[in-house]
Design a protein around this nucleic acid. Structure first.
Length: 343
DNA sequence: AAAGCGGGGTT
DNA sequence: AACCCAGCTTT
């Protein structure tokens, strides 16, 4: 059989299947660039169910790109709170300002790629879905589908493997209908060709797939090179208060939880603060960090001492009650705010 | 090419 | 405990 026929069969199978099984995602109703763009940024490394919720929340808070552009970064981070990878929210804000200034959304893959937070996958997804541009979008789903389809022996997370995947994705692309084709590939990866126990019996392209119903291959492919060990990290945060006021600081923009709010690790002077009990340590798991967070509660001897301490560390004094208005890491909102709010 | 960035679900 | 999720940016 000729390769062209092979690709054609895959395209046909996908198209047929997607026409029946496409999920009813909110941004597939009344499609517009804003909703599509927002969905793609939210869904980067984020599961669909979580992403859909956040999409509704952000659409409600910022109905148009202008609302987003005119908002403060703190407001956007607050709306993003809990979703993780907070740079995405800051890039979203920057991109919104650019789009708002330009007066319109980008109209091509190349133009989308220039926006902050938009890489090759996102630019391809948006431009194919919104403008029917014939570019292949390759995400984790597509990588899995293609690597199994052809029985790829290379690791998919090195340059050689990902180049092969991208080349095959281009050959497979339905240039008449790239938006639906890209979404069909992803949908298949999400619903049928899932990581564990894929449903080959329900797959429209199992005839063309080298790994189909082959447990050994399916367990091995997609092959990935070394995963980093989880590292233990110790954090020490000081909850420094005077009556109903507390000191909070903003995390540096280039690190973890960039521009979110939290508590200082600077120990206050014993001359002006009475040390209270340490709080129960919190263990918080991230993808490649195991964070052991320790907290100490301090009470200032007067308001001036609190203000001076805050000033010395570039922190902010706010009523405890207002903490919930700031965007904070899950570690804090989950384990610390419930304790502090009872004080 | 590799590191860093979140949080949570699933197995 | 390990893997995965509609990845991107920086070094």
């Amino acid at each position: 059989m000729h390769y062209n026929d092979y690709y054609k069969d895959v395209r046909q199978g996908l198209k047929q299947w997607y026409s029946k099984h496409a999920r009813d995602l909110p941004w597939r109703v009344n499609t517009n660039s804003y909703g599509t763009w927002l969905s793609e940024i939210i869904l980067q490394q984020t599961r669909m169910e979580v992403g859909v919720k956040k999409w509704f929340h952000i659409i409600a808070s910022f109905p148009t790109v202008k609302h987003l552009a005119d908002a403060s970064e703190d407001q956007i981070l607050k709306a993003w709170e809990g979703l993780g990878y907070y740079r995405r929210a800051r890039f979203l804000h920057k991109a919104a300002k650019i789009i708002n200034t330009n007066g319109e959304f980008p109209k091509s893959y190349i133009e989308w790629l220039k926006l902050p937070g938009v890489g090759s996958y996102t630019a391809a997804a948006i431009s194919s879905i919104s403008f029917n541009e014939a570019v292949a979008a390759v995400d984790g789903n597509v990588t899995r589908v293609i690597s199994r389809l052809v029985g790829l022996k290379d690791p998919v997370n090195n340059s050689k493997g990902s180049k092969k995947i991208n080349n095959i994705a281009k050959l497979l692309l339905d240039i008449e209908n790239p938006g639906n084709h890209n979404q069909a590939m992803m949908e298949l990866g999400a619903l049928v060709c899932n990581p564990i126990k894929p449903k080959c019996h329900a797959c429209p392209i199992s005839k063309q797939c080298i790994s189909s119903n082959n447990t050994e291959l399916l367990n091995k492919i997609p092959l990935k090179v070394k995963t980093k060990k989880i590292q233990d990290v110790d954090l020490m945060w000081h909850l420094v208060r005077y009556k109903k006021f507390i000191v909070t600081i903003q995390f540096p923009s280039d690190g973890i939880w960039g521009n979110l709010w939290g508590f200082p690790n600077n120990k206050p002077s014993k001359d002006y603060f009475l040390k209270r009990r340490p709080l129960k340590p919190v263990v918080h798991l991230l993808t490649h960090k195991k964070i052991h967070a320790n907290f100490f509660m301090w009470e200032a001897i007067n308001k001036q001492a609190l203000n001076d301490y805050a000033a010395s560390i570039n922190g902010k004094v706010i009523p405890v009650y207002d903490l919930k208005q700031l965007a904070m890491p899950r570690l804090i909102t989950k384990h610390i705010l419930p304790i502090i709010s009872t004080l």
